[in-house]
Amino acid sequence: MALLNQGCREKRFLQLKKNNQMKKVIESSGVTKSFGSTQALDDITFSVNESEIFGFIGPDGAGKTTLFRIITTLLVPDKGNMKVLGMDSVSDYKELRKNIGYMPGRFSLYQDLSVEENLNFYATVFGTNVEENYELISDIYSHIEPFKKRLAGELSGGMKQKLALSCALIHKPRLLILDEPTTGVDAVSRSEFWDMLGKLHRYNITIVVSTPYMDEAIRCDRVALIQDGKLLSVDTPQNIRAGFSRKLFTVKSAEKYKLLKMLRKNQEVLTVYPFGDSMHVTLKNDSSEKSVSDCLSREGIKDAVIREAEAGIEDRFLELMENGIKA
């Protein structure tokens, strides 16, 4: 009997999970936006499921901020439709704003107010108070609470980021939009920030976050790769990596610059990109790694080590960018 119960519960949980996945928090169809002659967004279609961590990954100028401003009702698309939390981002903007928490890239804190004053201010603007939703931010805010009398302008980068996140969460939004929260932040603080986002999952908050750092993709449930106002791919990080179409090799040598130049000259090499301590290389169709390594040793690079490797998100991004350039 107990076992049966457990089975039932599990089944119900799976069903709920399935229902949840069906529930769309953002539905963007054909969203297009230009500024003068610059096309910032070109026919953007995607959807975000409830309680997902959804990442937009792309360089500066890709259109991430413009898209986020449309989602948060701050900009109106030229064409297309943006539905957020079941509401239209243009006609229902007033109601929508109450349910969204937004942490913009550049500015969200009043530098000449203290930590505590900033938090109270944001709570008041949204018609709530800090006590009411304190549980939601306690994990994050507890790090900066000892400095609550300090002016926001005098906080370190990492502390500013924690305060800005607390302010964006204080009205318990159903959707949290974070525009490049980790840009310019060191590797350790970046990792801690993603740990905090992971913990918000249990409050059923949907998180949409943008970043220029490709390695942060693995922290998301799904990611959209964006470049020049177009979506290159939308999928789970695993599937995006799996989309890499060629065999990938890493080539290592102590003489990195020489190795790069030699590989670039090599007729059998299709692409070569430096990746940390090695080069990531793909070969033309009928080429073998053996002939490349022979060629390198003829050119005087005796210590080259070639290995087959698994492609990462950045490899796939580079491949998609190249295809885009060729197309």
Binding site: P59, P212, Q227, K256, Y257, L260, Y273, M321, E322
Partner: peptide
């Protein structure tokens, strides 16, 4: 931080100019 926010191809091209300069 010369390459903050730059796309992955440009970032790598930039490093090649660093190598060349050195």
């Amino acid at each position: 931080e010369p390459t903050g926010g730059v796309d992955p191809i440009t970032r790598r091209q930039f490093w090649e100019t660093i190598y060349e300069t050195a």
